[in-house]
Structure formats: C-alpha cells, structure tokens
Design a protein around this nucleic acid. Structure first.
Length: 309
DNA sequence: AAAGGGTCCAACCGCGGCCGT
DNA sequence: TACGGCCGCGGTTGGACCCTT
C-alpha cells in the first residue's frame, strides 16, 4: 500500500500567492524547515497543494534568492553551462547561487535563446577553433565554442556579503519584507508577530540549502586561482583538487544519472570510475569544467558578446 | 489616448524516479 | 515485490506589464 494522498484536489487554491499565504508558509518553514511538503498544507491551513507550497518556497521565498537583472557574468555562466549540460536547469542553478532553476530557465527562454540566435545570424555559427564540449548534449547548437573568462577570475571577496551563507536568511527576510511592504504597515499585531518571525529566523538548515559556494584553492597551472560558485557535491580533497562527479561522470552518450543503465554496464562503469579515481590520486586531474574554464583561447569571443548584442 | 502586439515571469502541469507501506 | 504517493524536474501557460503604432 502506498501513502495517503498529499492533498485532495477539491478546494485547492491556485494562482498567485498572497502576502498572507507567504507569511504563513515562511513562518512554518522557519519552524519546521523545508521538506515534508505533504504536511505543509495540513499543518498550516493553507488551501494549497504540497506542490504549490514547495514551488513557492523554492522559486520565491527561499533564502538567498536574488531577483532582478542577470549580470553578464551570470549570463556567461548560463550559456556556458547550458552548452555543457543541456536544459538541466536544476544542475545549472547549482552553479548560480541566488538564482532559481525557474529563473534561469525563464531567462534562457526569454533572453539568451534570442541573443544567441541573433549571434548566429551575425555569422558566428561556424565551428570555432576551440571545440569545448565533445560530450555536450544533443542540443544542436554551437554555444560550446565559447568560453567566458570573467567568472573564472571572479574573486570570492567580490561577492556581496549578503550572499554568504551566514546571512542567507536575511535575504529571505528581505524578499518577503519587500513583498509585504505596505501590507505590514497597516497590519494587525499578528502580522507584526509574523514579521518578527520572518526577520529573526535562525533555524534554517544549511544542509537543505543548495545556495552555497566554495573557494577552489589555487591550482598549479600558472593561472589565477579559480574562485567560483560550486555545487555542494564537490569535495575538496586535501591536495587542493576537487572531484566534481556531476561533470566528470557526464557522458554524452549516457548520462550518469540514467537509472536505466543495467547492472553489467554499471559494474563496468564503477570499475572505470574506480580506476580513474586511483589514477587521480597519483595525478590529480583538472576537472573537465576546470579545463574548460581555464582555456583562454576562446575567452575573448565571449567577452565581446555584450557589445555585439 | 487607445489598441494591438510583444515581453516577462510566477505558477501550473505532467512525467519519471524514488521510496514508504 | 508490488503498489501508489511524494518529490523534483523540465516544459508550458496565463496574465500583467511594456512598447509601438
């Protein structure tokens, strides 16, 4: 037998969220943490399905979300990562803390696709001397021929202090307080209590938050140190190199997350992986992403993009 | 000033994998 | 082991807003 349904469809509210609903949701999550979405509508009295609650939290109320225009740096990363990973927006979002997968997806569909199309029409669609992603997805684009240097060299200390993990909840408070601006002024004592809760949260579980960045230590390639946002999956080893499974294991023929791989294939895959890991201990490799980011040969092309657009 | 078209983005939908029962 | 709900993801939609004519 399965679980009981998370919610019944009858009486479920749809459409835009009200500030009141946001407060209820944020207050609840502050107390209980994100997760167990099935219980959220029941415990909060929200007339929303669990899915809607999760989406609202993930795409709007979650701490550390940055709204507004994308920077050229972010644009470059999206273009780059889309070329590498395809339309894996959630995966791309792990490299862009503060941006949701939904935001990235929207931005891609509304801005970048057009820009790149225009870029192609300007005659930049011939194969470049630098083919960066032989294992890229089936997307029949040539975006992979570009690379962007700017975000590779972005020092961590340029990152706004509000972006670091110790203040992620402050960002959430900003989000919702901005949202609730005006409403709070004329609100009841209850609303003021909620406001206090919103701004005073300390219960946020960092393990639930993908909005993290780590500093990749200097490497030995005669390059500036790489300091960029990286997803949680990265493990920094003692020798300063890191393993990025999601990239390293990416195979253009078959994704590493393809659960349809049969056991035999999996065994071979595991053997190869183990052999590679052993080899890596002796010769710590640059990850595919690192190699890509460090390749300066095509950097200038991408740097010129803004002026072209 | 109004109409029509375009743009943007929050939210919904449907699917597939995971996991509890 | 099978069933069925939960969760996360990518694709799509609808309505508000903006721009052009």
């Amino acid at each position: 037998m399965g679980r009981p349904p998370c919610c019944d469809k009858v009486g479920i509210k749809k459409g835009p969220w009200t500030p009141e609903e946001d407060i209820i949701l944020v207050s609840y999550i502050q107390e209980h943490g994100p997760g167990n979405w099935r219980a959220v509508p029941t415990n909060t009295g929200l007339l929303r399905c669990s899915k809607s609650c999760r989406l609202r939290w993930t795409n709007y109320l979650r701490p550390g979300i940055k709204r507004g225009n994308f920077t050229p740096h972010e644009e470059g990363m999206i273009i780059h990562l889309q070329a590498l990973l395809g339309n894996k927006w959630a995966a791309i979002a792990t490299y862009l803390p503060q941006r949701t997968d939904n935001d990235i997806k929207n931005y891609w569909n509304t801005h970048l696709k057009k820009k790149l199309k225009k870029f192609h029409q300007l005659g930049f669609d011939q194969p470049h001397h630098h083919q960066m992603a032989p294992t890229t997805t089936a997307n029949s684009n040539n975006y992979h021929q570009f690379t962007l240097k700017s975000y590779v060299e972005r020092p961590v200390n340029n990152i706004d202090k509000h972006e670091n993990s110790s203040s992620v909840y402050a960002s959430s408070a900003e989000n919702i307080s901005r949202l609730l601006e005006g409403w709070m002024r004329s609100s009841s004592p209850q609303a003021n209590n909620n406001n206090n809760i919103v701004t005073a949260n300390t219960n946020y579980d960092p393990n639930e938050n993908r909005d993290k960045f780590v500093c990749i230590p200097n490497d030995d390639h005669g390059s500036n140190s790489i300091q960029c946002y990286m997803p949680q999956q990265i493990e920094i080893s003692s020798n300063g190199h890191h393993e990025l499974d999601s990239i390293l294991s990416y195979d253009g023929r078959k994704s590493s997350c393809d659960s349809s791989r049969n056991d035999q294939e999996k065994d071979h895959f595991d053997d190869r992986k183990k052999a590679k890991m052993d080899d890596d201990i002796i010769n710590p490799p640059l990850t595919f992403l690192e190699k890509w980011l460090l390749d300066e040969s095509a950097a200038q092309v991408m740097m010129d993009l803004p002026s072209i657009f």
